[in-house]
């Protein structure tokens, strides 16, 4: 009995090596290690609070002098007007904008940055006046959304990546493994038709899952054509990417492994970038970051497609590149 169990165990191990599942065993710890290296070891709080002050605004002299006399805690930027200040907050060039009526404008109320800004003000006031009452009377957030809605972009990204990188590569590889693609190539079907049908079916699956997500959740986005168009372009990019991953594999098991290997690095840096300065510098390289950031801008800042032309072009280019590569491999009858 033990002998047979040993034989079968060894056989299963050989299969995991052969179908490359073993890669996951090494890849996941390696990925965690690299990600931890990229995540700041200290909490992602700014060393200095970057505060914006509007040029012609009349501030409380005591507050103004205190801020300017604490260069170790505050980096002051002079801002022309309120609109410019809001733009700089959105671009994350300043952490907060102070108005004369002790109103502080921040990007998101529930964020580590906002907490740091308020703590810094409290500490400064205590040092100047010895009191523990905050100079800030009101905090206004540029992003007005509940926590559920704020998590929406992450769920969207998860769904898009799940369909593209886990479901689709497996389906494409299955057609190769079972020689169904070879049969289809015995018909007058053009290679590009097969390829585009795969991209299209993946886009449909993504769209159905997103519509379902919006229907069952209570997150009201309303009819926003910019949002819909962006999701379509995003789903095209990742669908084409997923089809390419599937095409690189000979069988379903390999495709699943490769899908997970690509899924995590696309999900985590994009989702965690705001918690780490290092990650936020690396994350823009992955298309999922461009996707999730744009979705956030459309949902929370009412950005339009024209304002997101770079991100849109980037995603469309990645999608087209993936289609081009898949087409080349299909023409070469890669691993068929």
């Amino acid at each position: 009995m033990i002998r047979n169990i040993s034989i079968l165990t060894l056989n299963d191990l050989a299969i995991t090596i052969k179908n490359k599942t073993i890669l996951l065993v090494f890849f996941i710890p390696l990925f965690v290690f690299v990600t931890l290296k990229l995540v700041d070891s200290k909490p992602a709080v700014p060393e200095k609070v970057k505060i914006g002050l509007i040029k012609n605004e009349i501030y409380d002299q005591k507050v103004l002098t205190s801020i300017k006399s604490a260069p170790g805690a505050f980096a002051v930027s002079d801002i022309a007007d309120l609109e410019e200040g809001k733009e700089l907050i959105k671009e994350k060039k300043i952490d907060a904008l102070l108005l004369k009526s002790e109103v502080l404008i921040v990007l998101k109320r529930q964020s580590i940055t906002t907490l740091t800004v308020l703590e810094s003000f409290q500490a400064l006031q205590k040092a100047v006046e010895g009191r523990n009452v905050n100079w800030i009377s009101k905090v206004e957030s540029l992003i007005v959304a509940d926590v559920q809605k704020q998590s929406l972009p992450i769920w969207i990204l998860m769904l898009v990546l799940l369909v593209s990188f886990v479901i689709m590569p497996s389906q494409v590889a299955e057609e190769k493994e079972k020689k169904l693609l070879v049969s289809l190539l015995q018909t007058p079907m053009k290679e590009i038709e097969w390829l585009l049908s795969k991209v299209l079916v993946c886009m449909i699956l993504i769209c159905v899952s997103l519509v379902f997500l919006h229907m069952i959740s209570d997150m009201k986005i309303g009819f926003n054509i910019h949002y819909i168009l962006f999701l379509i372009i995003g789903s095209f990019c990742f669908s084409a990417y997923g089809v390419l991953l599937g095409f690189l594999c000979r069988n379903q098991a390999t495709a699943r492994t490769l899908g997970v290997i690509f899924y995590l690095p696309h999900l985590l840096p994009a989702a965690l970038s705001e918690y780490s300065a290092k990650l936020s510098s690396v994350a823009p390289l992955v298309p999922s970051f461009q996707f999730i950031e744009s979705v956030k801008k459309i949902i929370f800042e009412q950005s339009t497609i024209s304002q997101l032309s770079f991100e849109l072009t980037y995603l469309a280019a990645i999608g087209l590149l993936a289609v081009g590569l898949s087409y080349y491999l299909l023409k070469r009858r890669w691993l068929m």
């Binding site: 079972k178 020689k179 169904l180 070879v182 049969s183 018909t187 007058p188 079907m189």
Partner: peptide
């Protein structure tokens, strides 16, 4: 493809679909 038919060693068919579906799919493509 209009001149040749290729029958492979293993019958590569869509297993989860009926015989008629498999034939209809290819008839449509042709």
């Amino acid at each position: 493809v209009k001149k040749i038919a290729f029958v492979s060693e293993t019958p590569n068919l869509y297993d989860f679909f009926s015989v008629e579906y498999n034939l209809k799919l290819f008839a449509k493509l042709f």
